[in-house]
């Protein structure tokens, strides 16, 4: 087969279709995976503390900093940036807790989330890079959400959290709640 074959219209058309399938298939696969997690995953509530930076590629979002961001890893030490599978449960207070971290997907231990480690410490506590750390909003609403959060936190309210669906190691945010109410509902009167 000589190189001229690769320049023929027949080959280029086949090549084009392969590229088109790849270009359309990847976003489609992303949607299918996230929809599956949202519809069939188990819901967990993670306590948060939002701030608001700017990401040129993806518009404005509320940056979420989880209160639960480490796991005890007795007997096992992890390197920074290592991929781990962290088992998640709902604690007595109704909010999510990480119980253990593993190098391979844990079987029979309930739900787990795939994430990376930040760093470990001598006390056996491993800090985690939480994969759901943004809540995207309209660029006018994101700063409003931040203000609303501070107002809620000033009132000594501990009921600010994100609802996250978890399935097969994947986690997708369902909604952000300020004082137990979805953020968009709070912002509707002051929003658009």
């Amino acid at each position: 087969m000589n190189i001229e074959f690769f320049k023929t219209k027949k080959f280029m058309l086949h090549f084009f279709f392969a590229v088109a399938i790849l270009q359309l298939g990847l976003p489609a696969a992303m949607i299918v995976r996230y929809e599956d997690v949202i519809r069939n995953g188990t819901q967990y509530k993670f306590r948060t503390a939002p701030v608001d930076p700017y990401d040129a590629f993806r518009g404005r979002y509320v940056a979420l900093s989880m209160r639960e961001d480490s796991v005890r890893s007795d007997g096992e030490s992890f390197n920074p940036c290592e991929t781990v599978y962290v088992v998640v449960i709902t604690g007595d207070d109704g909010f999510a807790k990480f119980t253990s971290a593993h190098r391979t997907p844990p079987v029979g231990k309930g739900d787990y989330i795939k994430m990376k480690t930040r760093w470990g410490s001598d006390s056996g506590e491993t800090r985690l890079e939480i994969p759901f750390d943004r809540f995207y909003m309209n660029e006018h609403l994101a700063p409003e959400a931040e203000k609303a959060y501070f107002k809620a936190s000033r009132q000594d309210n501990d009921n600010t959290f994100v609802a996250v669906r978890v399935k097969n190691g994947h986690a997708v945010i369902e909604n952000l709640y300020l004082d137990g109410t979805p953020v968009l509902e709070i912002l509707q009167p002051t929003g658009k």
């Binding site: 976003p27 992303m30 949607i31 996230y34 949202i38 990401d55 590629f57 994969p131």
Partner: peptide, 19 residues
Amino acid sequence: ASGSSIAIIGQTYHVGGDL
């Protein structure tokens, strides 16, 4: 266009993650 399609889907599902 392909970059923007991935980005908007990430945005819709609040997929965190980094640049």
